[in-house]
Nucleic acid binder design. Structure first.
Lengths: 139, 139
DNA sequence: TATAAAATTGTAACTATTACAAATTTATTT
DNA sequence: AAATAAATTTGTAATAGTTACAATTTTATA
C-alpha cells in the first residue's frame, strides 16, 4: 500500500493531519463515501475537524487527481479513492455502489463526439444487485 | 412525430395542459433541460404554471418511462426526452451536453456485476467539445 | 347536478454545498 | 529564536435545488 503522506506530497499537496486522514479513509473504504460519511467517521479521531474542511479537501483532491468523483448519486457527492478506469453499479434496492472492471476498456471511449477531447469517462449501471435479488422480501 | 396526448395516455398518464406542454418541450428541445429551464420557457404560455408542477411532472414522466434523467450534471437534475440508449458528453468549457450514438451497444452492458439485473445504463464523457477547442480564448 | 378523484398550486421546509472571514497552524525570513 | 508571511482549518451564514404539504382547482364519475 502506497504511503499517503508521500503520495500527497507528490501530488503537490501538503500532508496535513486532516488531509492524510481523509486520504487514508478513502483508500481503505472503497464504498464511494459522501463528505458527511467521511466527516462522521473521522470526527472521533480529529475532534476539531470541520465539515467544510472535508468538503474543501475532497474538492482539492479531485482537482489534483488524487481521487475521483462519481456522478451516480444525485442526492450527495460521492468520492472514489480508485482513480483507475472502472464501471459503477448502483443497486436501487440496497443503495450499494459496486465497482466492476470494464470488459473492453479499449472500446469504451469509442462514442465520443467528433473532434472533442476527453478528460473523464463514467460508465454507470442502475439495477438490483445479486444479493437483493436473492432476498425475496425486497422484490 | 408522435402525438403527445396519445402517447401520455398510452403511458397511463392523463394529458393535462401542463403535462402536454412539458412533454412537448422535452421532445422539441434535446438540450437536456433542467426543471427551471422548462418552467421559464413555459410560464408565458401557461401563466398559472407552478415550478412544483414541473418538478412533479418530470419525476412522474421518469417513473413512467416517458423521459430519462441524465446524471451528468451534479448542480441540477437534467432530463432527456430521448429514452433510446445513447451516450452523453458534457463540455466543461461551454456546458453543452451532446448526445452521441453508442458505437457498440451490444457490448456496453458487458461490465455488469455478477448476478445483477439491469434497469438503466449511462455512458458519460467529460471533456472539451470541438467548438470550444477551436476558440483559442477558452483554452 | 352532486360527489369523488386527480392534478395543480404556493408556501414553507429541507439538505447538500459553498462563501467568507476569523482563527490557527506551518513555513520562511530576519 | 522571534517575527512575519503563507497556507490551512474552522464555524457560521448564505445559497440553491428539490421536496413536503395542505389548499385549491380541475376533471371524471355517479
Amino acid at each position: 500500500m502506497r504511503n499517503g503522506a508521500t503520495y500527497l506530497t507528490e501530488c503537490g499537496l501538503r500532508p496535513s493531519v486532516q488531509r492524510l486522514a481523509i486520504y487514508n479513509y478513502m483508500v481503505t473504504h472503497p464504498t464511494h463515501p459522501t463528505a458527511d460519511e467521511i466527516f462522521e467517521a473521522l470526527r472521533d479521531s480529529i475532534p476539531t475537524l470541520s465539515k467544510t474542511t472535508v468538503y474543501n479537501t475532497l474538492k482539492l483532491f479531485v482537482a489534483h487527481g488524487v481521487i475521483d468523483e462519481v456522478f451516480i448519486d444525485r442526492t450527495s457527492e460521492r468520492f472514489d479513492g480508485n482513480t483507475l478506469l472502472h464501471a459503477h453499479f448502483l443497486c436501487n434496492c440496497c443503495g450499494a455502489i459496486i465497482d466492476t472492471p470494464i470488459e473492453n476498456p479499449e472500446r469504451v471511449n469509442d462514442s465520443l463526439p467528433h473532434g472533442a477531447s476527453l478528460n473523464k469517462t463514467q460508465l454507470l449501471y442502475f439495477g438490483t444487485c445479486e444479493k437483493c435479488l436473492n432476498q425475496p422480501n425486497n422484490n
